[in-house]
Amino acid sequence: MLSLQRNVALGALALTIALAVLGAFVPEWILYTCALVLAKGLVVLGLCLLLRMNLVSFGQGLYYCAGAYICGLVSQMGISDAFFLTFLAALGSAVVGLILGLFLSGYRSVFFAMFNLALSMILYGVLLKSISLGGSDGVGVAAPTYLGYAPDGEMRLYVFFVFALAVAGASSVFAFLYTKSEMGLASASVKDCEIRLEYLGLSVRYLIIFNFVIASTLAGIGGALVAMVSGHIIPELAYWTTSGEFVFITVLSGPNGILSAFGATAVFETIRLVAGQNMPNSWQMLLGSFLLLSILFMPNGISGLFRRAKAPKPDAVGEGINND
């Protein structure tokens, strides 16, 4: 279905260009927030792939933080090219994801969540005490350049925004095609019935590792983007509450959307920005209630709202018997 791939790529390109143009006319703080949303949305996108398999990682901050530190530390060495740094962060977090995924793929449910959490806390503990890596103060990140082009002044943020937009757009196209692909469909069926997959001849473990590596890579890219836009990285990127935040947004998004991953991130950041300023001691309460309500009423998140509208009516084919 080449036409599908072409259509999606063209659609994403059009959307990216439209947003890039729009970005030229908004105030700096909005642009900054948008860049943040794109970065974090990538992490969420990866978690959506895992959620499709009913896997929730309470330690995605590990790869996010790894990507950010790779980007930051390499930029300290005087290499500031955004493309190269992002690539390096993606590669690094993919390798970490692959190595850890080999072990993690044997775990499900709360054990998967907790193992990820433990691993991310190890990184947090190490970074916090490593003087050479900045300890609890973290590390500064040099302003990025783009294939030799070094924007300055007001242009700096805008150019970065366009860069982040391009990265997020490309990742989204890949993620979309992936979810529709042979591998993607097989992965989506893991949560329903691992036994059937094994009895079809597929290794569930392989599928989980594959998705895990994609998720880690996306988290690493997100981390690199955050490092570049904020200009500073700290161990808290690996702390479990950071991961919890990503899980929160992922649940809000639901597993089946691409745009919804970024949409949910935007909602989250907006609530934090607006509510955090106006009611600093109760915005988490607002978020928590929001989460409970969405789990209760939108079991498939924002993406589920659109999906349900498209699904055909369940006709008179008798009552579904849920045997699991």
Binding site: F174, L177, E182, M183, A186, G201, L202, Y206
Partner: peptide, 21 residues
């Protein structure tokens, strides 16, 4: 899902981009 397994065999031969349908 089953067809793709029959056509492609093990998970590693499944394409991450080619449409499952």
């Amino acid at each position: 899902v089953a067809v793709n397994v029959a056509l492609k065999g093990a998970a590693r031969s499944h394409s991450p981009l080619r449409n499952a349908g």
